[in-house]
Design a protein around this nucleic acid. Structure first.
Lengths: 80, 80
DNA sequence: TGTTCTATTGCCATATATGATAACTTAATA
DNA sequence: TATTAAGTTATCATATATGGCAATAGAACA
């Protein structure tokens, strides 16, 4: 899939789970030590985040990284 | 866990799966368009790779991203 | 010996993720 | 109206992931 779509899907996963936990972006940013503006960019899918921050976010949300990153699409057998 | 440990575990997962598929680093680098030196650094756990390259590698290995990133450890309840 | 394949390492330049701050919008509420 | 909270966006500086190339080392083999 396109890069931007990948970022958006990951960002949306984070936003959805964060809201399920009743946390604001600022709450989450304080817990995991990521700038709130950066968190906003990540959730908006405007950033190619690193596994380091993916890990920090997953720990702050008390979930596994794979629960955030489980956004692969089915119809990609011939992507490469 | 420590950043370096995270990178190493992810790198090792990639290396293990790559070898299971009978691919050399150069093979994989050609398939997914990642510099072979960068791939070497990633597998060695010396790089905080981005989800974009995580995605490219997973597609080249014909697996899901979560199969690479499934390295969370159990004893981290109180990490944050 | 020489050759080939594989992987690593060093170096440099570039792109960009991130941190940090400020300004702004919107919504909710007193 | 004013105030507060939540989120977005712009800007800038810094750190670093990546691309690219060259050199090196080790293993396997002729």
């Amino acid at each position: 899939m396109e890069d931007e779509r990948l970022y958006s899907m990951v960002g949306t996963r984070i936003k959805t789970i964060r809201e399920q936990k009743g946390l604001s972006q600022q709450d989450l940013s304080l817990i995991c030590n990521i700038e709130k503006t950066n968190l906003s960019r990540i959730e908006a899918g405007r950033t190619n985040l690193t596994i380091k921050n993916l890990y920090k976010i997953s720990k702050a949300l008390k979930i596994r990284m794979k629960e955030i990153i489980d956004v692969d699409e089915e119809d990609e057998k011939d992507f490469y």
